[in-house]
Write a protein that binds this DNA or RNA. Structure first.
Lengths: 238, 238
DNA sequence: CTATAATATGACCTGGTGGTCATATGACCA
DNA sequence: TGGTCATATGACCACCAGGTCATATTATAG
């Protein structure tokens, strides 16, 4: 295992296939990853359910991780397309409001693609230690997106320039993960995933979570001026 | 795989062993879980490195999960003992300050037991989907602890009784995970894990993270009175 | 010392895994 | 029709997993 970023993508033979056959393979892989994650997904099972031969699988994909990374790309692309096709309720949203809109619109997208989201989230959250080389790029893209958003907000004067940007990025990313895994955990228990996501109770919980984050971030820097971290209880001595 | 909570613990034969041999087996298992997690840990490797036979392993433990759960118990017990032996800086800490002290004292403990903490955290965070039946009890204990702390704080008048307790528990648990995984991720890159944990930079980051959480939680309910969630941007229509 | 109980052993079992490669098949072209 | 190229096949490979169980060894008791 090298430290090089993962760049392999499906081979041309895969793209030569009829659409229907291609989609069938992808859908079966989605089911497999949703149920077993990446490490425990089995190429033997995927092959058996797809009705393709084992050797064909390796003519289409470099290895098991390759097909997963392809799913990841599909999901990213479709989600960005979905978000581009939606409009925020008005053009004067500040950054936090925009972020809230984005998270919740993302959840609307997720509720109509729950299997694929489940598959990807399960791996991103659950197998980060095993597949860091494959997942680092995707995580960096998320962080970069958030960082750009915060930088723009600072330029627009919406966020105090003294904010710890690294901290804010970290908090927002962690929050996104928390909300996503909450939705995934609880959603799996529901009869109708989408109806549950749209329910007033769930929406309220998500709102509250997002407000906790916002107020925490807005407050922190100014409060540090009046109450520096040195007043925090000392950590135990070695 | 049944839905029954996991209760098996090592067999008497394990406790009959000389102390030294017992600790050796445990230490080797810790190394294995730290490196491979639970699903990918290998009994063959543990056995080979311990110098015990395969059959003996199954005389000491019910199965692979059994030895992991034993580690979990050891860690919980040692950590509670460590916290009991420490005193907060003063007796007038409010709940958030107490929680901060607790998290940071816990980190002091972690930095002297980093391998075991790494092993347990890796599984608790990374393999939650595979081993929910084993890990649920441990997670419930954490939540119960946090809930009791919040209930007491409400009784003492430190926290507004209108707070959404479920939300607060969820946030505090998520935050603990975020801090722990941050420490684990970054700590793994360091030459001297303990020195890095104690460094001013790291302490400041942890402080900031904890303050974000505190301010977010303190603010939320009162703010909802003046700005109800219905003003939040609507989620995209189906 | 013998008998019994406790402990240790490791070959074997069943069941997989990801991936390879020699061969077969099918489509297309002249 | 034969030749070429693209695609499909599946037996096989090396390796591994968790766990079992007949047997061997050691410790202990009388």
């Amino acid at each position: 295992m090298t430290t090089r970023s993962y760049k392999i993508m499906p081979k041309q033979t895969f793209f030569n296939l009829p659409d229907e056959k291609r989609e069938n393979i992808i859908n079966i892989a989605v089911d497999e990853f949703a149920e077993f994650g990446l490490e425990n997904a089995s190429t033997n099972r995927i092959v058996s359910k797809s009705g393709i031969s084992k050797g064909s699988f390796y003519q289409y994909f470099e290895d098991k991780q390759d097909i997963f990374m392809h799913l990841l790309k599909i999901l990213e692309r479709e989600k960005m397309a979905y978000l581009s096709g939606q409009s925020p309720p008005n053009m004067n949203l500040d950054t936090f409001a925009y972020y809230r809109w984005m998270v919740k619109t993302g959840l609307a997208f997720n509720s109509t693609n729950s299997k694929m989201v489940q598959a990807v989230t399960r791996v991103m959250v659950g197998e980060r230690f095993f597949f860091s080389k494959y997942l680092t790029d995707a995580r960096e893209r998320t962080k970069e997106f958030i960082k750009n958003m915060i930088d723009n907000a600072i330029k627009k004067g919406e966020i105090d320039p003294s904010i710890d940007v690294e901290l804010a990025v970290m908090v927002m990313e962690a929050w996104q993960n928390t909300i996503t895994t909450y939705i995934l955990d609880e959603g799996m228990k529901q009869k109708d995933f989408a109806a549950w996501v749209y329910s007033a109770k769930t929406q309220e919980m998500i709102d509250k979570l997002l407000y906790v984050m916002e107020y925490g971030l807005r407050k922190t820097e100014s409060e540090f001026i009046t109450r520096p971290p040195s007043n925090s209880p000392l950590i135990g001595e070695k």
